[in-house]
């Protein structure tokens, strides 16, 4: 079998807040084209891991490479969906405008978005089924709709790797299905998708790759090989029994 390309390579990554490590010596290689869940208990450093890959948080040690180069040189290859709760949804702006923000990175400094960017944003809105809401003020959207807007914004970034921080948090079942279908489409198109995920029950159904994280990396690999009670117990510290579908 041909050697699989590595999309994200993390070596000896340590991140600390006030000298208290939240991520401890993480080594992780994420192969291209996987749909990967990052699972772990609260405070395990899942969001921190994504943020330090994206250079939002500065690690105290270690390195991150996106397709063999530092993140700063590869920004255009990466799209990011932060936690829904991390922004103020009362901000005076519309759904379309938020999706347009996805184009700001490729525009770079000072340059304004134009018709081309607007067209891309409208297409992304259509893909997530939110075109009818394009002029809606964002506070007037339901939680699931807000999450779809965030997903559309990431789609507009037209990246090779997608990082999503809890995209299923506080969304209804229909939206969850819609989101996972889009993520699976992305994987089919050869993209790499990395998702911070909470619902262990759905891991085997949604993802093909999984990383167990609790300050240290517990395990990483194909869901069918490593998603088992042993790793769950190591990660969550209590006896875990999840019936794994093979």
């Amino acid at each position: 079998m041909e050697e699989q390309k590595i999309a994200v390579q993390i070596d000896d990554l340590t991140v600390a807040y006030n000298y208290k490590p939240v991520l401890w010596d993480i080594d992780l290689a994420i192969p291209e084209g996987v749909l990967m869940a990052i699972v772990g208990p609260n405070g395990a450093g899942k969001s921190t891991l994504i943020k330090s890959i994206l250079d939002i948080i500065k690690p105290i040690a270690g390195s991150v490479e996106i397709y063999g180069k530092p993140y700063k040189k590869q920004r255009s290859l990466v799209a990011y969906v932060p936690q829904k709760g991390s922004v103020d949804w009362d901000f005076p702006t519309t759904a379309l405008d938020v999706v347009m923000m996805g184009t700001y990175g490729s525009l770079g400094w000072i340059k304004r978005p134009g018709q081309k960017e607007k067209k891309a944003a409208l297409e992304a809105l259509e893909k997530v089924g939110m075109l009818a809401f394009k002029n809606r003020q964002i506070s007037q959207l339901s939680g699931g709709q807000q999450q779809r807007i965030f997903l559309a914004r990431a789609l507009v970034q037209n990246a090779a790797i997608y990082f999503m921080d809890e995209p299923f948090q506080g969304v209804d079942a229909t939206t969850e299905k819609a989101i996972i279908n889009i993520l699976k489409e992305l994987r089919k198109a050869g993209k790499t998708v990395i998702v911070v995920h909470h619902d262990l029950q759905t891991v085997p159904e949604y993802f093909d790759w999984v990383t167990f994280l609790n300050v240290k990396k517990i395990a990483t690999g194909p869901v069918k090989d490593i998603f088992n009670d042993d790793n769950l117990t190591k990660t969550y510290g209590i006896n875990y029994k999840v019936s794994v579908q093979q």
Binding site: K51, L54, D55, I56, R75, Y80, F91, T93, M101
Partner: peptide, 8 residues
Amino acid sequence: FDAGLASA
């Protein structure tokens, strides 16, 4: 609106 995205 979204400092995390801006930074990324």
